[in-house]
Write a protein that binds this DNA or RNA. Structure first.
Lengths: 334, 334
DNA sequence: TTGAAAGCGCTAACAG
DNA sequence: CTGTTAGCGCTTTCAA
């Protein structure tokens, strides 16, 4: 494994010159530079990034810690982050916290130890370990969910408003007993979507029952959502529409509805968060709240890079809008 | 940002002792160890992984370079890799090559520079850069697609046989003009699936036409597949069944079929690779070839860790079986 | 059991 | 324009 001194020796120059030549730094005699390049190539030299970073006290890598790699919403964010990072010469390493505060802590620790330049994070909850990051001076930007502990850069979605609009859309379509299937308490997006739902329900008086009767929480997973759906359908009378808090849950919900022979739209209205690629493939197509996931990623990366460049800039919090895409599953005539 | 010498000074010991105490090494006087721990805590000391790794010449991180983060098949592999890595105390960083040889090269370079302990890779093609890895002695295991350049550890799926069985399944179901929609030439899985399809077609004489008339290639993406489908449907006569090489493509295919008002199964038989979460949600449900993605990930990680432990062990190549899951989309009576 | 000291591979003053 | 030199923060012989 060739080192910089091997190259220096072979090229008959000092290590400093090799370093300069290889980094295109300052002015190096073209002849020498060529000799160095040749020597490096012959030796199959690969710079040791560890040593370089240790010396430079900086890395060109960003960490992206997301809560679910299998959720298209988060992978779309990942693409957004990656695209702008690449352009700026940064690599991004993706870490899957799996909605586990423990794993999140582990990965933050790794990020800290590897001295990454910055981290984009979708916090699993009240992440105390995030404080460690900012104490150490590592820039962080939160996506999808705010940092509870402190203010910092963040890119969020106005998900409460979106939930409200989705619910109003169901009401306008003639549904009256609308249930809400959301994520775990304490997860901000789950709470916000529920709140938006309640905003709409209260205002319209659509549901005669107490709010909680038609509210179910589960993990942001298909199986939990399936159970919750079965539970809701056992009510008398059952709900005539469902607001589902993400696409992973929607899979579980739709499976149960199909098993019961309930037709979307006609028998039961459904609106789900996240415009999954398959949303148009179900029959009738699924009405969704499309979140600008890719944009969240690009914005977050831009914010992060800006802060890496200047850690004194004031913190900015961006809130992007979600868009309701009405399709057949929320129409009684579909 | 506290360093080890800060801790040493505060605890009134040498840096060597701090290092030993913090790593639980050899026998350190309990009293001193406690002093060190306390000092570290007070200072908010976080070890510098860069320095440690530089010194130790090793890292506890694995790189996983996959060709598409948005493909559930690959994210399932990622979970498998991550689960076994975590257990062994390794972190895994996920890199998205996006089916681009260039990005793959970049990430291999990063992996090399960061001196990761090993890499799991789904090669985009004839990756010459992989050789660099093995030259440098970094263990690699290939998943999903073999390394063309050389032999090494790999975990594959018998995808040719699976494609053949899927095609035979369609033939048995009474379809006679079966088309094949596969990925780009040169991508091993794409070629293998085509070959398996051709195996079955030739053997049964199902299609009277020359093989190529019913074969289309496109990127492993929805849009390309949609175009190819439209193209196939324009034939006279059009195909009466489709074998689709992955679930991302299936999205595009199903969209076109729905737009044309073609009923799955009855009007046109469809079998697609990969058991996507939504496969049961379309009507009728989609017949799929389920690949053991999670297992691929766990096996690959195990192989990699084994080789990190002992780089002289003989290379092993595992080939896992895929499983046909017949559902409504491949039945005329559905 | 502990400390002194060397050095992992690289970059950045500072001289020349 | 090039070389010498001093570390970045840590681990690990080697002595004591």
């Amino acid at each position: 494994m060739a080192t910089i001194s091997d190259v220096a020796e072979r090229a008959g120059v000092s290590t400093a010159t090799v370093s300069r030549a290889l980094n295109g730094k300052s002015t190096v005699d073209p002849a020498l530079a060529a000799r160095v390049q040749a020597a490096a190539a012959e030796l199959g030299y690969h710079p040791n990034g560890l040593a370089r970073n240790l010396r430079r006290q900086e890395t060109a890598v960003l960490a992206l810690i997301i809560s679910d790699v299998e959720n298209p919403f988060f992978t779309a964010i990942a693409r957004g982050v990656e695209d702008v990072a690449q352009t700026a010469g940064y690599s991004v390493v993706l870490c899957n916290s799996d909605e586990s505060a423990e794993k999140e802590r582990r990965y933050i620790d790794v990020a800290l130890q590897e001295r990454v330049a910055g981290v984009v994070l979708s916090p699993t909850g009240a992440s105390t370990s995030v404080q460690v990051l900012s104490q150490r001076g590592t820039p962080v930007v939160a996506v999808d969910r705010p940092l509870t502990t402190e203010v910092g850069d963040q890119v969020l979605v106005d998900t409460r408003l979106a939930a409200r609009q989705a619910t109003e859309h169901l009401i306008a379509a003639g549904y009256r007993r609308i249930a809400c299937l959301t994520g775990p308490a304490g997860v901000r997006t789950a709470d916000d979507r529920l709140a938006g739902y309640q905003d709409a329900v209260r205002e319209s008086g659509a549901s005669g029952a107490s709010d909680d009767e038609l509210v179910r929480r589960s993990e942001y997973r298909a199986t939990g959502a399936a159970e919750a759906t079965a539970d809701l359908l056992a009510l008398t009378p059952p709900p005539d529409a469902l607001l589902v808090a993400n696409s992973t849950m929607a899979v579980g919900v739709l499976e149960v509805l199909a098993a019961r022979g309930l037709r979307l739209g006609r028998d039961i209205g459904v609106v789900a968060f996240d415009d999954a690629p398959w949303a148009t493939l179900v029959d009738p197509p699924l009405t969704v709240v499309a979140q600008p996931a890719y944009d969240i990623g690009t914005r977050a990366a831009q914010l992060l890079l800006a802060r890496i460049g200047d850690n004194t800039r004031e913190t900015t919090s961006a809130t992007l809008a979600a868009r309701l895409i009405p399709r057949g599953s929320s129409s009684r005539t579909a």
